[in-house]
């Protein structure tokens, strides 16, 4: 069965085109579930921030806009390198796929490193929610902001860690020339996932870091 088929084409597909369309469409449908997954969190954010505007502004002012801003730039950069990796796959430069993806991984690691620094500051200041949460200001319910901050950024970071794990598998395969212009669905599909994670951060950054700058309430 398989020997009558071209390399990289699974037996139940008729053509590379059908295989590729199926794989992209599958990835997009999966991303729709991801939209709703983070959507649940954004919904919680929306309701609680409406109910506790002062606490959210106060909590937000504790975050470091500089580090958050740098991380935004880093993540956008990693999206660029990922897009270039996909481009390399489309034009058939398989070593360049590996190089661009490795760069994407390094930028992703940088993001997580900076995130870890931020986390350790917050935990050190007693802002990790739970029994040991400390807040000296007059505002009430600031802990709720940090609940949501850690939940949202934590799940975002988890998505990045999963993404980097997948990259570790894909980079060696790319280097060995496993992906051709006809058959590189894994690279493109992974690219879609990575860009999605970037988009989530594009929303998290203003919602978590910037909301309290001018807030006088």
């Amino acid at each position: 069965m398989a020997d009558t088929h071209a390399p990289g084409l699974q037996h139940h597909f008729d053509s590379y085109e059908q295989q590729q369309e199926a794989s992209f469409f599958g990835m997009w449908v999966f991303l729709a579930t991801e939209v709703l997954f983070f959507g649940g969190l954004f919904c919680v954010y929306l309701i609680y921030r409406t109910a506790n505007p002062v606490a959210f502004a106060a909590g937000s002012r504790e975050l470091d806009i500089l580090l958050g801003g740098i991380n935004t730039a880093v993540l956008i950069g990693s999206s660029l390198t990922m897009a270039l990796a996909v481009h390399a796959a489309q034009v058939g430069k398989h070593k360049m796929i590996a190089i661009w993806m490795a760069l994407t991984g390094i930028l992703g690691g940088t993001f997580l490193g900076i995130k870890a620094v931020e986390y350790s500051h917050k935990i050190h200041e007693g802002h990790f929610p739970g029994p040991h949460f400390v807040w000296h200001g007059p505002e009430v319910n600031v802990e709720m902001f940090f609940n949501i901050y850690f939940m949202m950024t934590g799940l975002h970071a988890l998505h990045m860690i999963i993404g980097m794990g997948i990259m570790l598998v894909l980079i060696p395969l790319a280097w060995k020339g496993r992906f051709t212009p006809d058959s590189h669905n894994y690279i493109e599909g992974f690219g879609l996932y990575w860009h999605f994670v970037d988009i989530v951060w594009i929303f998290l950054f203003p919602l978590l870091y910037l909301l309290g700058v001018t807030s006088h309430v």
Partner: peptide, 14 residues
Amino acid sequence: LLHIGIFDPALGGD
């Protein structure tokens, strides 16, 4: 698990 009170009314949750 972590006693992060997301739905806890005492912390402004619902």
